[in-house]
């Protein structure tokens, strides 16, 4: 397995020998190790069912929700073992955006943005709230579109706006890393373009880990890429190099469309 050359100081996340099984002995992700570079967009590619989502969800311990799932190995966030962190601290530092936009249907746009605070019982005064809401919505270029309807339900927005709202909800909690699982696969091309532009801007402040089905999307916006196949991390390197000169035969076959 090829490893990207990351100075440990640059690594915000270190994934060490992570394996995940949905049921005993049946691994969906096997022995993945990788260091994720700070302030970069890292794409995770691979054919359907190769374990991209499973790996991503191991990083913020979403698998804890389902007692049957077995996770092995270790993920370090800034050198600290995430298994030893509280889930609130961990998920505050590592935000997540899902494949389908999932704003909380009963909450207003404003409440959706600060849901991370409300749901964890963190109290904010009015000016703090307003500041977080405005800043987060501005970060996702949604502020101008919704500033007059902050008290309306988030579900009234278009799919692309909803997804940007979900990104704002993750940003509002001031994470270091944002995990995105095919965030544009349910969006139209124009909304997709907006989200992509947004991600490229966000990498200045955040580290972005992006699962994508779409090779050209990975080529457009990622700095580094992982290629996974049958639960294994086959290749990990600079996106440009991987696309021009893949080291593994399977990567080559995937990138040239021999399988998908």
């Amino acid at each position: 397995m090829s490893e990207i050359n990351v100075n440990i100081k640059d690594a915000v996340l270190e994934i060490n020998n992570v394996s995940v099984a949905y049921n005993k002995g049946n691994y969906a992700v096997t022995n993945v190790s990788a260091a994720i570079k700070r302030n970069k967009v890292t794409a995770i590619m691979g054919p359907s069912g190769c374990g991209k989502s499973t790996l991503l969800r191991a990083i913020n311990r979403m698998h804890d929700l389902y007692p049957n799932i077995i996770t092995e190995g270790q993920v370090l966030l800034n050198g600290k073992d995430t298994n030893k962190m509280s889930t609130i601290m961990l998920r505050r530092k590592i935000g997540m955006v899902f494949q389908r936009p999932n704003p909380f249907p009963t909450m207003s746009i404003a409440d959706n943005v600060i849901a991370g605070y409300n749901l964890n019982g963190i109290s904010l005064n009015k000016t703090e709230k307003e500041e977080i809401i405005e800043k987060s919505l501005q970060d996702v270029a949604l502020w101008n579109e919704v500033k007059d309807s902050l008290n309306q339900k988030g579900t009234f927005l278009s799919g692309g706006q909803q997804q940007r709202l979900c990104i704002a909800r993750a940003l509002a909690f001031q994470p270091e890393v944002i995990l995105l699982d095919e965030p544009t696969s349910a969006l139209d091309p124009i909304s997709t373009k907006k989200v992509e532009e947004l991600l490229m801007e966000l990498k200045e402040k955040y580290t972005i880990l992006l699962v994508t089905h779409n090779m050209s999307q990975a080529a457009r916006i990622s700095d580094n890429s992982m290629f996974m196949y049958l639960g294994e991390l086959v290749e990990y390197g600079k996106t440009k190099e991987m696309f021009i000169n893949p080291k593994d035969k399977r990567t080559d076959e995937y990138l040239t469309g021999k399988f998908s």
Binding site: R92, F104, G116
Partner: peptide, 8 residues
């Protein structure tokens, strides 16, 4: 899951 992903 959105709620859990926020650490709630």
């Amino acid at each position: 899951e959105a709620g859990f992903a926020l650490g709630a």
